[in-house]
Structures are given as structure tokens and as C-alpha cells.
Design a protein around this nucleic acid. Structure first.
Lengths: 195, 195
DNA sequence: CTTCCAATCTGATCAGCGTTCAAATGACAA
DNA sequence: TTGTCATTTGAACGCTGATCAGATTGGAAG
């Protein structure tokens, strides 16, 4: 194991928090939560072991910042996925696929976003980014629903479908081969209640 | 913080692996995965710090054993829950409620059962106990389905509903107040496809 | 331009962790 | 009774997160 030391020409880094978030996410995608450590993140960013703690307070703080950025990415993905379709049902399907694809395209972020016990759920940025993604999803369902359907039913459906997607991904129940089919099945079945 | 030392009259414990599993689950329920450590489990069991490692090889090994026992508990709960109902749909609802109640009645076990990244998924006992629970669930759905429904659809429904329950619980989307209603909503909506 | 404050970053330190290993112990088969 | 071997011990190693005094420096105030 080689010990690479990154040298810097300035004492102040200039952009350390962002770099730490990126390096942290990369480390997560390479080694998983087991291999994650504040010290290693510091090492990779070429700063002292204590630097990450200074900016984020604790390991939980850095992980929370990574998760928050992850939810921002998810919201972006879902928005552009939805924009690619005209039909409201297709929008919902596209958003669900975006959800699933997070785990493939951004495994570091995806691996921590829902590990609530490792995050500071009271963090305001985290809360905001997390609800941003879900609100987008709920709004898409509202538009897909018949206008005369009880809003409570729409809310139930949104929560249930969101939970379904989370479960399918978290439990690795989506095999690549049948991914599209299974997602379409879940969306159609749940949407049937509110159309 | 008092430091309690348990004394033993015999050198050989006699039943250490079981005790370690129980103490580990208790520790998980008290302190969460953050507060879990092999050393603390050893301390609580009144044995040396290295004893747990001897029996389970690693922390991952002990956590896997706890999770396996948890799935056994879940299977038991689901079986007796299902037995309390005649109607096939009510059986499924009862099983879902049993799933949810795991987190309340056995929080230590529930907290680790699906944390795949912390477990050894190749462990044969773990695999067996985990599939035991899901197979029970799938079988209940098969009985609830109309006999002329495509078995693939039944399988999809089973996986989707299992994922839904997992998501609802994992994301803490079930508030106690509306738990029964939300579960019934999810089951009815998904069962509608195969009845 | 100079001074000085506050934010940033360092490096040492501390306690606790998982794992490994030689050595101690004792249950039990021969 | 003897010998074997699984069980249990305690020390050791290298790692971790967190803390803190002190070094460094950008930039605002004068």
C-alpha cells in the first residue's frame, strides 16, 4: 500500500468542504460504509486528519452533507426524467427509474442517503434537499391522478409508491433484466387506485 | 457510568454464542448500530474482549447471526399472525402488520436484519432464515390470488408488496395512528391486480 | 500600506475499537 | 488417569473519531 501525499502550494485550501464531500462520496462508492473514515477522506483531500472534523463537526456531519447533496442529485435526475415524457403516467415511471438509477450512477451518494441512523436528520439543508425530491414525486402523482380523487388517497399512493421504490432498490429486488417491467408493474398497479 | 463485572463460577461458559447473540441484540436496541461493539458485547456477557471474535469470527459474523435469528422471529410472527385469520386477504394484512411490529417488539433484531452491507449474505443459516420469512409471505399471496392469474404476476405482486412494507418501515413512513389504514391500503391496492 | 482579527488548517493526544495470537483452562473421550 | 482439543483469556497492534492548543493566512478595518 503506497502512501500518496498530496502537496498544496497554499496553506488555506480554498474549497475544502466541497472537496471533502466529493472525496467522501468517492470513498463510499469504493469501500462502502465500512471502509469510510474521516481520516481517509482527509488523506485523499491532502489535508490533516483533523480538517474534516473542523468543517463538518463529526463523521455524522460529513455523511449528512454527502446525503444532502445526493438528494439534490436525485431531485435533478427526477426532474429531467419527468421532462422527457408527455403522459403523466410515463412521467411517474421515468421518475421511478431515475430513483433506481441513482444507485448505479452515484453509488457513493445512494449508499448513504437513506441510512438514517448514520445521519443528522435535523440538519436543515438535509431536510430541505430530501423533501425536495419527494415533493417532486408527490406533485407528479397529483398530476397523474383524476381531479375528483380524494387527495388523501393521492398522498397514500405517493408514499406507498415511494416506499415501494425504496424497498425494491434497498432489498436489491430489481434485477437489471426486468427492471423496467417491474417498475412499470408497480406504478400501474398503484396508479390504478387514483385514475 | 457504572462498570458492572459479571463473574462466573465456571471457566467454560457453556452457552456463550447464544448469550452473545442475545446481548448483541439488546445492545443494538439500546444504543443502535453506532453504539454496538464486540468489546461491549463481551463485557455484557462477562467474558474477555476476544471471546466474541472466537465464536463468530468477526463483528460481521455476530451481526449476521443476530439478523438470522431476527428473520426466524419474523417468520414465527408472520405464521401466527396469518393463523389468526380465515380470509386470505386478511392473512396478508396480518402478515404485513407482523412485519411492521418487528420494529416495535424486537428493535435490536429489526435494526440489523436489512443492513445488508453489514452482514455476510453468503452465510447459509442467514440465507435460509431470510428466505423462510419471504417464502411464507409469497405463499400467502399465492393463496390469496385467483387460481387463473399468471404466476409471474403473483411473484411480482409478492416482491412489490414485500418491498413496499420494507420501504414504509425503513423510511418511517408509517405513523402509528394510521398504520392499519395505510397497510390495508397497500395490500388492497396490490392485491387488486391478482384477484 | 499596515495591523489585526477570525477562519482555516495542523499535529499531537486520548480513549476506544476489531482483530490476532500465544498461553491458560477444563470438558470429555479413550 | 491421561491426553486432546475446543473454549476462554489478556496483551498487543494498528486503526478510528474527537479534541485542542497553536500555526498560518486571507481579508477587513484603519
Amino acid at each position: 500500500m503506497k502512501n500518496v501525499t498530496i502537496t498544496r502550494d497554499t496553506y488555506h485550501h480554498g474549497n475544502l468542504p466541497d472537496v471533502l464531500i466529493n472525496e467522501g462520496a468517492k470513498l463510499l462508492s469504493e469501500k462502502g460504509i465500512d471502509g469510510f473514515s474521516m481520516r481517509e477522506v482527509g488523506r485523499r483531500a491532502g489535508v490533516a486528519v483533523a480538517a474534516p472534523s473542523h468543517h463538518f463537526g463529526s463523521a455524522k456531519g460529513l455523511l449528512t452533507a454527502i446525503a444532502a447533496k445526493g438528494f439534490g442529485k436525485l431531485a435533478n435526475k427526477m426532474e429531467s426524467a419527468a421532462a422527457s415524457s408527455r403522459k403523466t403516467e410515463a412521467k411517474v415511471v421515468a421518475m421511478c427509474q431515475a430513483y433506481r438509477e441513482m444507485g448505479v450512477s452515484d453509488p457513493g451518494y445512494a449508499s448513504i442517503m437513506f441510512r438514517v441512523e448514520l445521519l443528522d436528520e435535523t440538519d436543515s439543508v438535509f431536510r430541505q434537499q430530501a423533501s425536495l425530491a419527494f415533493d417532486l414525486f408527490e406533485e407528479a402523482l397529483r398530476q397523474a391522478a383524476s381531479p375528483d380523487v380524494d387527495p388523501v388517497q393521492v398522498s397514500y399512493t405517493a408514499r406507498t409508491l415511494w416506499a415501494t421504490m425504496h424497498g425494491l432498490v434497498d432489498l436489491k429486488m430489481i434485477k437489471d433484466l426486468e427492471a423496467e417491467e417491474l417498475i412499470r408493474f408497480a406504478v400501474r398497479t398503484l396508479l390504478a387506485r387514483i385514475r
